[in-house]
Nucleic acid binder design. Structure first.
Length: 884
RNA sequence: AGGCACGUAGCUCAGGGGGAGAGCACUACCUUGACGCGGUAGGGGUCUGGGGUUCAAAUCCCCACGUGCCUACCA
């Protein structure tokens, strides 16, 4: 069969789109919920609908795709569930910005109209990231794409909320929460990023009522003093003993504050006296609860000073701080100000400084759920890989606090709670209630708030499969096989999925959790838009091709280490892609119409036996690497094998056979060449889906997708130690000749004669493969000698038991050759000395395992013999030079 | 303040008790019928420092220094 010649270089652009379409048309990504094959399932970490593909997504989804594609080829029934997250705050922010461009805000629009706008937005832009995932080659089952706000998943959310409420695990409470004044919503503790902040510590004097004394408090937030309702000191603090139980007067305001004693106060910090603002500080609130203090909210939902702040009302909280400090100073209350670094909470979405605020919110009592989640990992029902992350997982779950789940935004799952206007009853129900369960009143008002986005994400592994309906998907694919994610959402997402999965499915959501690295820039900085160091994966894919990019990510994905991505590396791997292309091009040119899928004959030639033997090892090691999520080992062993074993040695070795005149031998080699390349393509396909598919269609006859081809399995009967040994000899001799050539600056084109001395056995091996060595080393003749005088005027080398001489009458540079031999000797001597020293050490001989001693002895003998030969060669040369 | 990683060739990183490795970069040579996105050869490292365990340490342990990250209610 005639096949067109491939172009000289691989051009990824048109190829990629073509094959992705083909895979989809063929339905190759589809999972079959009725298939009897063993299931393998993954749920995608759903990207935000507002998102664009960044490096983190690219890595995350490349790794998942590698697993899915390999498993599919191994015969598993693979389900990779894709989808997006509605990302409450982020999406609402985006649409609000859009509105702002029209001089509108959401309140002008009203809740219903606003929600419509968000859905419109989603229809237009929400598919962005999905298309970008397709561009990456992700083999998700798109027929099962999910969105956290769609009906089915919303039903799951409501069901879970109602159940947890009925079980007493969801409750409503009035307490200090994290408040973002810009997003005007409560946040969970996790959604607050602590960041270093260069602030000040202000020392403020409070006078004591009915006395001459005063006491000084230290604070970083003077503006909150307007809401102070006490001053606290440590009960055992002698300095303040006399003041306990008396009252202090609040400067600027004049309010009288009780001076209370509480062990929470740190005597070492500041002055040992603490101003207590229960409405704006979590600790102060606790103290307030204990001592029955009033709460005065002086900062409102937008971060503006409230009416309770008296003359400061209407000021922004930061402006107010400045004003308060000025006034304190003017009135002599400010003793001193120190620069002070503090870690302050910031909104993880908009970076605004968080305001701790007293507020009524919904909470999940997570402790009992967390206990289950810890147990499952402790019992090994879910493995966290690498295991070092287990510690983080346990630490967090052990110290977990109740989860604030209500958000004061509009875009999200509305809390299914209604309040009766007549009797105040709270109704929590699966279906919207028509009347109050207690007083039968019909005026029910639904809670305005929506749920934390992560609440719905926590249900993702089972809600995407149809829960609460008992679907065949759940039956087959839950628990999922593995969750692939980065550590930054271990708590946000993984731990919560564990809790919800265990609680509602009675089974862990995944068998394995593979935690991969974070992608950073070449300097190790986190990539971020504000730093301007973002490398856009889409640009990279345009520039280098998706396969080169994916290969780079896989090759870098070593466990437990961040990835520093430099563009040069991607370029390097593009060369590898091109190398594969050209190896295939060569193969295609030399197959005479044989195809990749013809049965493979038993190998006869050394090169064939050797490449198949090496291939089996690569398959075995590669499969093991993949099964233990060592993606980098997988990638680099394939790189090494393809480039160095297959291209550098094997292809060169078989050229004479392919160009030669022995039809039978040529035929066998063609088929083994075809088979080896086929295995390489199939092994590489999970990492580099596009080029392997393209080449597969050029080289295979059946027209099917490489996705449906079987993943290579190692055949131990093809492992041939003898062939590997013989190849080692051939490669050694070849390299030695090339080395002399290189160091002596002899043109690669010059044909050289070589004379080899050595014992019978090695010579026979060499003789059997003499023509290969002649070709590889560009030798005109290869003369084998049992003994006799060594050639004069020759460059020489030692390989194993063999001595190699290249007679270079007329062109030998004595000095250069002398230097070369001395260098070799110089490398050998310390190594031999080290081995000999070990062998004279009684302790080593007595305590080291026998095989280590034997190995050391063998090494010493070998190096000794080699050194002796080299020294003889050097002496001969020096004598000769002296005699001239 | 605690915890977790990491410090190996100029750069990016593998390795992980018994002969220092890769890719890129560098140097020299090369239109050898797949590939110059290539070939061949070469140079380059007291494996951060110091102790300890061991017959043997880049590898295990301790300490120090440096870097990064996570967690925490000292205002």
């Amino acid at each position: 069969m005639e096949r067109p010649l491939l172009p000289k270089a691989y051009e990824p652009q048109e190829v990629e789109a073509k094959w992705y379409r083909f895979w989809q048309e063929q339905g190759l990504f589809r999972a079959d919920e009725t298939s009897p094959e063993p299931p393998f399932s993954i749920v995608i970490p759903p990207p935000n609908v507002t998102g664009d593909l960044h490096m983190g997504h690219a890595l995350n989804n490349t790794l998942q795709d590698i697993l899915c594609r390999a498993r599919r080829m191994q015969g598993y029934n693979v389900l990779w569930v894709p989808g997006t997250d509605h990302a409450g705050i982020a999406t609402q922010n985006v649409v609000e910005r859009q509105l702002a461009g029209e001089n509108l805000d959401r309140h002008q629009l009203g809740r219903e109209k606003f929600i419509e706008r968000v859905w419109d937005w989603r229809r237009i832009y929400g598919g962005n990231i999905i298309n970008q995932l397709k561009r990456l080659g992700a083999s998700c089952d798109w027929s099962r794409e999910r969105f956290t706000m769609e009906d089915g998943l919303s039903l799951a959310v409501r069901r879970v909320f109602v159940s947890l409420y009925e079980q007493g695990l969801i409750y409503r409470g009035y307490r200090i929460i994290n408040w973002c004044p810009r997003c005007t919503t409560a946040l969970a503790n996790l959604e607050v990023d602590a960041e270093d902040y260069g602030g000040h510590l202000y020392y403020i004097r409070y006078s004591v009522v009915d006395g001459e004394e005063s006491l000084v408090v230290a604070t970083t937030r003077p503006e909150t003093m307007l809401g102070d309702t006490a001053v606290a000191v440590h009960p055992q603090d002698e300095r303040y003993r006399a003041l306990q139980g008396r009252k202090a007067r609040l400067p600027l305001v004049g309010r009288e504050l009780p001076i209370i004693a509480d062990p929470h106060v740190d005597r070492e910090f500041g002055t040992g006296a603490l101003k207590v603002t229960p409405a704006h500080d979590a600790n102060d609130y606790e103290i307030g609860q204990k001592h029955g203090l009033d709460t005065v909210r002086v900062i409102d939902d937008r971060g503006i000073m409230s009416g309770a702040a008296g003359s400061y009302a209407g000021l922004d909280r930061f402006a107010c701080r400045t004003k308060v400090v000025e006034d304190l100073k003017a009135q002599g209350y400010l003793l001193k100000t120190e620069a002070y670094r503090i870690r302050l909470g910031h909104c993880y979405r908009c970076k605004t400084v968080i305001e701790p605020t007293l507020s009524e919110q919904w909470f999940v009592a997570v402790k009992p759920l967390a206990a289950e989640a810890m147990g499952a990992v402790r019992e090994g029902r879910t493995r966290i890989i690498p295991a070092m992350w287990e510690k983080n997982y346990f630490d967090w779950l052990e110290n977990i606090e109740d989860w604030c789940i209500s958000r004061q935004i509009w875009w999200g799952h509305r809390i299914p709670a209604w309040y009766c206007r007549e009797c105040g009853e709270v109704v929590v129900a699966l279906t919207d209630p028509a009347a109050c369960g207690r007083c039968k009143g019909a005026t029910l008002v639904q809670d305005e708030d929506v749920l934390d986005t992560w609440f719905s994400s926590a249900l993702w592994p089972f809600s995407t499969m149809g829960w609460p309906v008992e679907t065949p998907e759940l039956e087959r694919f839950y628990p999922t096989s593995v969750l692939v994610t980065a550590f930054d959402i271990l708590f946000f997402w993984v731990a919560r999925m564990m809790m919800m999965g265990l609680h509602f499915m009675g089974e862990v959501p995944f068998r394995d959790v593979y935690i991969h690295a974070l992608v950073r820039d070449a300097e190790g900085q986190k990539m971020s838009k504000s730093r301007g160091n973002v490398i856009d994966p889409l640009v990279i894919m345009d520039r280098y091709g998706t396969d080169a990019f994916r290969f780079t990510l896989a090759a870098f994905a070593a466990q437990g280490r961040d990835i520093r991505l430099a563009e040069e590396r991607i370029e390097g791997y593009r060369h590898f892609v091109n190398k594969l292309w050209n190896a295939s091009r060569f193969t295609l040119m030399n197959l005479d119409g044989s195809s990749l899928d013809e049965p493979q004959p038993p190998p006869e030639q050394l090169a064939d036996r050797w490449i198949l033997s090496t291939l089996q090892r690569v398959i075995r090691e590669g499969t093991e690497a993949l099964e233990s999520y060592r993606f980098n080992d997988y990638a680099s062993s394939l790189y090494q094998f393809t480039w160095h074993e297959f291209c550098d040695w094997y292809l060169e070795l078989i050229k004479p056979v392919l160009y030669g005149e022995h039809p039978r031998g040529r035929r066998i080699t063609q088929l083994i060449l075809a088979h080896s390349l086929s295995a390489i393509l199939r092994l590489l396909h999970p990492i580099m889906p596009f080029i392997t598919e393209e080449l597969w269609h050029h080289l295979a006859v059946n027209g099917g997708s490489i996705m449906s081809a079987a993943f290579p399995q190692a055949d131990p009967t093809l492992i041939a130690p003898q062939a590997e040994k013989e190849m080692t000899l051939i490669m050694g001799v070849t390299t030695a000749v090339r080395n002399i050539r290189g160091e002596m600056n002899i043109s690669p084109a010059a044909q050289l004669a070589a004379v080899v001395y050595g014992p019978e056995g090695s010579l026979q091996l060499l003789e059997a493969h003499a023509s290969s060595v002649r070709d590889l080393a560009r030798l005109s003749t290869l003369t084998l000698c049992r003994d006799g005088d060594r050639p004069r005027l020759a460059a020489s080398a030692v390989v194993g038991e063999l001595e190699i001489f290249l007679p270079l009458e007329g062109i030998l540079d004595f000095q250069e050759e002398t230097r070369r031999l001395q260098k070799e000797i110089g490398k050998l001597e310390p190594e031999l000395a080290r081995a000999k020293k070990k062998l004279t050490n009684e302790d080593f001989l007595g305590r080291a395992p026998a095989e280590v001693v034997a190995k050391e002895r063998e090494k010493s003998d070998r190096l000794g013999a080699k050194l002796q030969k080299l020294q003889e060669q050097l002496h001969r040369l020096v004598k000769l030079a002296g005699g001239r």
